[in-house]
């Protein structure tokens, strides 16, 4: 059963716990120029008193047909057969930034050695029966790790092309 991280934007409050948990899990230290895998985006619209806003916690969506894999000139990016995670092999990455132009979600970032860095879906944790660190920490239950089929079955969710995870409800909150 392939599982994916998905976000219920109605529950995401932009607190950033997932971002920090991810940094703790993956030993990412911003002061050393290491980029975060997960980020919080905020969108505000309208003017007082009629404003609406949204928070979205986002990381790599592990696209079903990943544009970054197609854009990578070296074969450094691959899809794990079992977990369907999109994985970067740092040894092969040449830091050309091609994936940055390929990814529709602004995911790829590069460390000081110009190696692309992004979410690996915590595959080892998942194999060990644990949840990805971001899902595990989420205080509102906005991030969930669910079977893809289950998510696909929830018709209230609209799909982002053929992206398997990170499915978002496309309604504004207010």
């Amino acid at each position: 059963m392939v599982k994916a991280i998905y976000l219920d934007i109605n529950l995401c409050c932009g607190c950033g716990a997932c971002v920090v948990a991810c940094m703790d899990q993956n030993d990412i230290f911003p002061e050393k120029g290491q980029p975060a895998y997960r980020r919080i985006y905020t969108m505000e619209e309208g003017q007082f008193p009629n404003t609406s806003f949204l928070y979205v916690s986002a990381a790599c969506l592990h696209c079903a047909d990943s544009p970054c894999i197609m854009g990578c000139p070296t074969g450094a990016i691959t899809k794990d057969r079992q977990t369907k995670a999109v994985i970067v092999n740092g040894d092969l990455c040449i830091g050309c930034h091609s994936c940055a132009l390929a990814c529709p979600f602004g995911v790829p970032r590069y460390d000081l050695e110009e190696k692309m860095q992004k979410c690996d879906l915590c595959s080892e944790r998942v194999e060990a029966g644990l949840q990805p660190a971001c899902v595990r920490v989420c205080p509102t239950g906005a991030l969930q790790f669910k079977s893809i089929n289950k998510v696909l079955g929830e018709k209230e969710f609209k799909f982002v092309g053929n992206i398997v995870s990170g499915v978002h409800k496309v309604t504004n909150r207010r």
């Binding site: 716990a17 920090v20 703790d24």
Partner: peptide
């Protein structure tokens, strides 16, 4: 089982 950003740090 959850934490906020501060506790996670």
């Amino acid at each position: 089982g959850t934490l906020c950003s501060k506790g996670a740090a």
